[in-house]
């Protein structure tokens, strides 16, 4: 990349509150960081933790999930279901060595266009400070490492096999002698 590195933020917004809030931010012409890419889902409850992991694995530096405020879910309680998964996922991400600020769940109602701006800007700055997560590059690196290791092991096995073969011959020779 020639250009200065820019954080990549993937967001999953629920149709009824946060997506609408982002529309409101647009209608109100609030300006915020262009780093976010929004994917619309009907409810934050639809957000499978795999979506978040997949986004990180495919090159996102952070993932934002936006849902309705507790008690306001269009589908009664989908946002609570997301909250439960989010807490579990946070623990898992911690174990994976992924910084806490990279994944965030926010309640943003349809009236809170300013909150979309605030959260996106905040997160973009946090990700900028954290630097690239670069999982795809890491995967490539790890793949190469595994390949190197495999080649190494393979070479060693071949050498051992050759040596064993040679040893046996000499031993046989000795016995025969």
């Amino acid at each position: 990349m020639n250009k200065e590195w820019q954080p990549r933020l993937v967001a999953f917004f629920c149709n009824w509150c946060t997506y609408t809030a982002a529309d409101l931010a647009g209608v109100s012409r609030l300006k915020y960081a262009p780093n976010v890419r929004v994917i619309r889902v009907m409810c934050s409850g639809r957000v499978d933790p795999q979506f978040i992991l997949d986004a990180l694995a495919k090159g996102a530096d952070g993932v934002l999930v936006g849902g309705c405020h507790p008690g306001d879910c269009h589908y009664v309680e989908g946002n609570y279901k997301m909250l439960r998964r989010y807490h579990l996922l946070k623990r898992m991400l911690k174990d994976m060595g992924i910084e806490e600020q990279r994944v965030r769940l926010e309640w943003i109602s349809a009236a809170e266009g300013h909150k979309v701006r605030q959260v996106v800007n905040e997160m973009t700055e946090q990700l900028r400070a954290l630097g690239p997560l670069g999982l795809p590059q890491k995967f490539e690196e790890w793949d190469r490492e595994v390949e190197r290791l495999a080649a190494d092991v393979h070479a060693r096995e071949a050498a051992d096999a050759a040596a064993a073969c040679a040893g046996r011959t000499s031993a046989e020779e000795v016995t025969h002698a």
Partner: peptide, 27 residues
């Protein structure tokens, strides 16, 4: 809403218009 879809451990619930492969391809 798709809440059951997001929670199915075996990935065997599909939401029309928002199925897994559609969202993964979007990501």
């Amino acid at each position: 809403c798709g809440t059951c879809v997001g929670s199915c451990p075996s990935g065997s619930i599909v939401q029309n218009l928002f199925d897994d492969e559609e969202i993964f391809s979007e990501i």
